[in-house]
Amino acid sequence: MDCKNVQDLLSAYSDRELDLVKSLDVENHLEECISCADKTKAYTALNNLTRTPSLYYNAPARLRERISASLEKEDAQIKRSRINFRWIGYAASIVFAFFLGFMSQQFKPSSSAEDAFNQEIVSSHLRSLMPDHLTDVASTDQHTVKPWFNGKVEYSPVVKDFASQGFPLIGGRLDSINLKRVPVLVYARHKHFINLYSWPSSDKTTGVHVSTLHGYHIAGWVSAGTAYYAVSDLNVSELQDFVKLFQTQS
């Protein structure tokens, strides 16, 4: 290494920032070259000069207080905007809750008692149409079905069979309507099933009232202290035929 090369590296050498190989080369040269060695000392002296403590500017005392104050102010501002954001969040979730409530109402009929009842009984009917849910006792023989209910329900239903009229008895089932255990007689008409629910009622005898929910018909009446509901997707007129049969035939 000649003097020119070394002198280019002296600044970094004085900072110990040269890689090992270059450092060793420079040192070797410095051991033999007084002029470069002097230059190195000059670098060291200059570096020490620039590190003189009196050249270092310390922060004035008031600056610390200024900064603390401005940080507190910023912090308060952020907190305030955070709260606002939180309230927006609350408002949004309330609006959303209303929206959900509104949307759910679209899938529910209006909240009259009859509608609620229809919903319940049609749901029960639908459930019975699922595999293996139709009957608890499967028998076309009314003399089998009727005794089956003994001890299982408070009120034992009148069981009739209308096979010769095209409404055969399929079986019986226990169900739950309005938190009460009720007997259900299952009839068929072609490919349709009719669930006939019955339970004691203190209402006066009524004529047949038919309502419809989601394509399912509910024919209800009260007779001799018993309320009856026949549910089916069978068309209304044939359903009413069934009802008439039940009402008149003993």
Partner: peptide, 12 residues
């Protein structure tokens, strides 16, 4: 805050 002087010195 421990680095306030360093920050000020550089800025100054």
């Amino acid at each position: 805050l421990p680095h306030l002087d360093a920050a000020y010195n550089l800025a100054r």
